[in-house]
Amino acid sequence: MITGFGPPDVLTVHNVPVPRPQADEVLVHVRAAAINPKDTFIRKGRFKRFTGEKFPIQTGFDFAGEVAEIGPGVTDSPVGEAVYGMLDGWQGGTCAEYVSVSTGRLCKKPEGVSFDEAAALPLVSLTALQALRDRAGIATGMQVCINGASGGVGSMAVQIAKIMGARVTAISSPPNHDYLADLGADRCIDYRHGNIAAPGQRFDIFFDVFGNRPFRSVKPILSDRGVWVSTVIRPHVFLSVILTRLFSRRKAKVVLVKSLRDDLEQVRRWVETGVLRPVVHSVYPLENIREAHVQQETKHTRGKIVIHMG
Rank of each mutant, 00 (worst) to 15 (best):
G52Y: 05
V28Y: 02
N36L: 10
R31S: 09
F47I: 12
A32C: 07
R43M: 11
G52Q: 04
G45E: 10
A34R: 07
E25H: 05
T40C: 08
D39V: 06
R46N: 14
R49Y: 12
A33N: 12
V26T: 03
D39N: 09
A32P: 07
N36W: 11
F55S: 03
T40Y: 04
N36R: 09
L27Y: 01
I42S: 11
F50N: 13
D24L: 06
E25W: 01
G45Y: 11
I35H: 08
F50Q: 14
K38S: 13
I35C: 12
V30F: 04
R49M: 14
I57K: 00
D39T: 08
K48M: 14
F50K: 14
R43G: 06
N36P: 10
E25P: 01
F47G: 05
F47N: 12
F41T: 05
F41G: 04
E25A: 02
T51K: 05
A32V: 08
V28I: 07
K54I: 06
G45F: 13
I35V: 15
G45K: 12
F55E: 03
K54L: 04
Q58T: 01
K44D: 10
E53D: 12
I42T: 15
K38L: 15
Q58E: 03
E53A: 12
K54P: 00
V26C: 01
R43I: 08
T40Q: 04
K54E: 11
D24T: 03
R49S: 14
A32Y: 06
T51Q: 05
T51H: 04
T40K: 04
F41V: 04
H29N: 13
A34I: 07
A32D: 05
G45A: 11
G45D: 10
F55R: 03
I57D: 00
R46K: 15
T51W: 04
P37H: 07
F47S: 10
I35T: 13
K48Y: 12
E53L: 03
G45S: 12
A33Q: 09
F55I: 03
A34M: 08
Q58W: 00
G52I: 05
D24R: 10
A34C: 11
V26E: 00
T40F: 05
T40W: 06
K54G: 04
G45R: 11
D39K: 05
F50T: 05
A34N: 09
K48C: 11
K44A: 14
F41R: 07
F50L: 13
G45W: 10
R46Q: 15
K54V: 08
K38I: 15
A34L: 08
R49K: 13
A34H: 08
F47V: 12
I42R: 09
R49Q: 13
R43L: 07
V26R: 00
P37E: 07
H29G: 10
A34Q: 06
K38N: 10
K38D: 09
I57G: 00
H29K: 15
H29D: 13
V30R: 03
Q58D: 00
P37N: 08
R31I: 02
R31L: 05
R43W: 09
K44S: 14
A32L: 07
I42A: 12
N36I: 12
G52V: 06
K48A: 14
H29I: 02
E25T: 02
